[in-house]
């Protein structure tokens, strides 16, 4: 799968700072209880995702499909079964009230916001860069950072092994059982060799790293160096303006009166 993309200003932001800002924004979003405000903030983040991720538009649209599911699934339970006073519709257990409808939309937009922020981050940040930056700016211990990087490198090998096990079972003519028992059999047949193989491999890697004098001191040299730039200021400014302007607009020009 080709996932290359153009470099935009979002790629040039310091990865630790980017993660930090996004997490703070998520925390803030947990306390936004006003629907209009939430819609404004989500729009601002969607704009970043659609215009500045550097990926071609068709891929962006493809990646947006799950967002619809997330929005619908998160909001539907609240809309259909939430509490409220002003009844709009009632059918058996389902009762839609004005309050539950609005709260459902709020929850849906919040889920959308979290999802878009996460995807924007992972589309514009290489994990290796993030861990190098975390070591340099956040002083994450190298043993954690390098373990993460090694583990991420092992993902393709794990997928390959999964394929190997599947092929091996096919070649040996493993019979297909049906129902719950087949599920149990499959889980066991795949997870045990995959897990034990991974543990053995991880152990070997760690032994090799220590044999080569991997040191956990923080004053080491880095192949990739990260600092801060104008892009970082712009990034922070964008969200400050978004939060303030969003609040102003939601008070002055609300979409829905609540």
């Amino acid at each position: 799968m080709n996932v290359s993309s153009a470099e935009t200003w979002l790629h040039k932001i310091n990865p630790s700072l980017k993660l930090f800002v996004l997490i703070v924004l998520c925390m803030v979003a947990l306390f936004i209880k006003d629907l209009n405000y939430m819609i404004n903030v989500t729009m601002g983040v969607l704009l970043l995702f659609l215009c500045f991720s550097g990926h071609p538009l068709n891929r962006i649209l493809l990646l947006s499909i799950p967002f619809c599911f997330i929005f619908l699934s998160t909001s539907s339970a609240m809309i259909l079964f939430g509490q409220g006073e002003t009844l709009w519709f009632k059918w058996g257990l389902i009762s839609i009230t004005e309050e539950s409808f609005m709260r459902g939309l709020l929850v849906g937009f919040r889920a959308l916001l979290f999802a878009v922020l996460g995807l924007t981050f992972s589309l514009t940040t290489r994990p290796v860069n993030l861990f190098y930056s975390l070591m340099q700016q956040v002083k994450l211990k190298p043993k954690y950072a390098y373990s993460f990087m090694a583990a991420l490198r092992l993902i393709p090998i794990m997928l390959e092994e999964f394929q190997t096990i599947r092929n091996a079972m096919r070649v040996r003519g493993v019979e297909r059982k049906k129902g719950i028992r087949s599920l149990y059999f499959k889980m066991k047949a795949y997870s045990i060799p995959l897990l034990s193989g991974s543990i053995r491999r991880a152990h070997r890697i760690a032994v090799a790293m220590e044999a080569k004098r991997f040191s956990d001191t923080r004053n080491r040299t880095y192949y990739y160096e990260f600092g801060f730039s104008k892009n970082d200021h712009g990034f922070i400014l964008y969200f400050v303006i978004l939060l303030l302007a969003g609040l102003y607009l939601s008070v002055q020009f609300p979409y829905l009166s609540i």
């Binding site: 043993k143 954690y144 993460f148 092992l154 991974s198």
Partner: peptide, 11 residues
């Protein structure tokens, strides 16, 4: 130790 961390993270 490094071994513990690496194995944990890989799992």
């Amino acid at each position: 130790k490094l071994t513990d961390i690496l194995v944990t993270i890989v799992i």
